[in-house]
Design a protein around this nucleic acid. Structure first.
Lengths: 214, 214
DNA sequence: CATATGTGTTTGTGATCACATTTCTACAGG
DNA sequence: CCTGTAGAAATGTGATCACAAACACATATG
């Protein structure tokens, strides 16, 4: 037990929430993994009170599921649920990208290209966690330009719910190529091509989920 | 202090969450209204522990906002935020209605008509809370047919965030007529007219928010 | 009249405890 | 080898307490 929390101005439960949220969203946990109050409390040197708050908050956002007896675990998503979440991503992210397009200047495109290179590196190294994290960073960087915090927050909770499943998925499909759709997105942004942007984004969000329905 | 909670199989914090959630979603609280742990605890005859859980859960869903010093209050939405949430409603609810359309048989349409009559009664009586509740019941009844629980849950959190503002809005616009768009929705459902359904639904969700931008 | 100042009260936070229930683990019987 | 069962361990829940920070309001000061 090491104190992994800084004694900053943030409350302990809040720091803990952020740490666990990243673990889940970026695929550092597998689906169905159990989490206990006293286990987390021991790991971070806390009592159960702030841990309970952090876990309940994550559960409220769908990042954790609670069994009928109150136990916490990362969600195991059904195929139907995955299809639904992918549709939600497509709906909201297409809208976010559309709103970002008029404000997407060259500096933004360059930053996206830099992130995209990092994604390629992660793919080459078969580093699932880094891949998921940088991929989401690509999307978030674009959507921040949309100036639509509520939409961004909503889509982030969708990412959160898919985190553990994304990890499991990545291991199954073993992708070798850097994301082709990201290049299409960048091209559409440069050209100011809204229809092209929407198509490319929808494809990027939906791909990878097909091999699941098998 | 009366014990408003049944000693059922549900945990106290869970019952409390549901009660407060309904209060907020159905416009029984005004925007900016303060809520305290000990206040709610006293009202329901509980200690602060389960109250904290319920309030934090509501805050995680956007039903309450937390000040920098940790105080709870119902959210006061900016015009930009309202526009965003209305767009989210339109995006997701159009999709839900589209998915429900193939499964919408006569029995469902009749139930929707019954609910619609209740809405008219609430409008005639100028009963804001009943109007909001039955109006959302109309939408929820339709969307349940879509068999898309994740999408429904997402749009319900949007409703939740708009609850207090809806109440304030209703008082400002003083509507006299029963919802015309609901009739268009019902007609499109009967005719199996998907484009018409999408247009009517988008109009229903977006109307009322226009008088806000003034 | 406006603006600090001070003080008592209120508020959220985290730790600790008791309790009921669930889950795990041997061990027995078939 | 499988199954059921008794005891032990682990788990979430809610109450209570101490504490520091924030707040409200009356009073003093310019």
């Amino acid at each position: 037990m090491v104190d992994k929390l800084q004694d900053s101005y943030l409350a302990a439960h809040d720091q803990l929430y952020r740490i666990l949220r990243m673990r889940i969203m970026y695929g550092e946990m597998s689906p169905g993994q159990a989490i206990t109050l006293r286990g987390v409390a021991a790991e971070f040197g806390l009592s159960v009170t702030p841990v309970r708050e952090a876990l309940k908050r994550l559960a409220a956002e769908g990042a954790l599921s609670i069994s009928v007896t109150g136990r916490f675990q990362t969600p195991k998503l059904s195929n139907d649920r995955i299809e639904e979440l992918a549709s939600l991503r497509a709906l909201i992210e297409v809208e976010l990208a559309t709103r970002a397009l008029p404000r997407a200047h060259m500096a933004l495109v360059e930053r996206l290209q830099t992130i995209n290179n990092a994604i390629s590196v992660a793919v080459a190294k078969a580093d699932a966690v880094t891949y998921i994290r940088t991929n989401l960073e690509f999307h978030r960087t674009l959507y921040l330009r949309a100036q639509a915090p509520a939409m961004l927050a909503t889509v982030e909770t969708v990412w959160l719910q898919m985190g553990p499943t994304m990890r499991a998925l990545y291991g199954r499909l073993q992708r070798k190529d850097p994301p082709v759709n990201h290049r299409l997105i960048l091209a559409a942004l440069k050209a100011g091509d809204e229809p092209g942007l929407r198509v490319a984004l929808r494809a990027d969000v939906t791909q990878g989920l097909r091999m699941l329905a098998q």
